[in-house]
Write a protein that binds this DNA or RNA. Sequence first.
DNA 1: GACTTTGTCAAACAGTTGCTTGATTAAGTT
DNA 2: AACTTAATCAAGCAACTGTTTGACAAAGTC
Lengths: 209, 209
Amino acid sequence: MPPKPRRSPKPHERQRDPERTRKLILDAAAAEFSAHGYVGARIRAIAARAGVNQQLVSYYFDGKEGLYQAMSERWRERQRDLVPPGTPFPEQVRRYALEALRDPEGPRLMAWSGLEYTGPTGDPDHTARSQQLADSVDELRALQESGRLPADLDPACLLVMLMAAAMAPTTLPHVIEGVCGTDPRSPEFIEHFADQVALLARHIGLDPT
Amino acid sequence: MPPKPRRSPKPHERQRDPERTRKLILDAAAAEFSAHGYVGARIRAIAARAGVNQQLVSYYFDGKEGLYQAMSERWRERQRDLVPPGTPFPEQVRRYALEALRDPEGPRLMAWSGLEYTGPTGDPDHTARSQQLADSVDELRALQESGRLPADLDPACLLVMLMAAAMAPTTLPHVIEGVCGTDPRSPEFIEHFADQVALLARHIGLDPT
DNA sequence: GACTTTGTCAAACAGTTGCTTGATTAAGTT
DNA sequence: AACTTAATCAAGCAACTGTTTGACAAAGTC
């Protein structure tokens, strides 16, 4: 008989690897939730995508809701260490747009949860994310006080408007298809659009000095 | 026995009024689809909201898909006669924002269908809507050629960005809640935000002269 | 008045959904 | 080797989905 590979302490051998399984499920969940939203996502599809049995989802996470929470939290953690501080703001915006458009998984998740939003809640998901954004608002406010940004603009609103504008090819692809006449997901257009968002920020009154 | 109200030719009497029923269903559908999106909307809920039997939905429209189409088309028609031509552009933007935020049903429908968008298609829903927007793009282009708008901005992209920005309280309410610290649906904030969008348009280089 | 068409309903049907159960096998412990 | 725990699976269940069926009464037609 074939010699059973006596479990040497190398966990790469692809059998009974809980860490790997968790990750597989979380990745699949991110893809599926981002594609179809919370209601539209199917546990069966996630399991299939991850190549594991459906029950493992309930085994590792607490059902659909638990999986969604875990997935969002992981995504939030990842995002945390992605902001490079000290970049001039329009360029920061352009990079954000580029990043958001090249890999729309995050923006899509944000958009879905925005539409599913029912009212002011103490949802940790929201408060956590807004913490990061608060820094950007401070930065904007500082720029404003140094006179490099019109005084009548509300920094917080401005940030949100720029975010929404940057996410447009993700949230309003059909409008873009109609108005611009191009595939909103083609790399050329994405780059063009990111430039436009940066230009918008610049024309508000902010040169990267 | 009670004298059966011999069908006098007054169709207001609330029995067997197909026109009324159709409208009830369409209204309920708009509310439900706008609230939960296509997948999330429940036919049972629509029927209940309209106060009619569930089967009538299949009777009058061709199932869920048909109902959705009919509902979108009606909405599109309504929108068509709502654009007041000849208004200075920032004010036009401000009004659009205000309208979009006071009654978010339309923007929500647009956002849902954007997320459910799968790729470039000849969907009449999209092409129809973009026809209206094409006019606004032309207007922007004209302003640009008369030198009242920076030459490096792409009018089509600009329009989309402004739309997305204006819709932000609808599409990203959770972000606003976190960043601005207020209820994104309160009338005061909505007015404030609409002003901000108009200001944004104005600061790009366009005074309402 | 008999007959057809139209608007409406209650009930049920076939297909999915997320989740639970019970069993099986690998890994760890003694 | 015996035993416990952890990881995995296949099968099935109750609830829910959009749609269909079959009935029936109001309105229209002759």
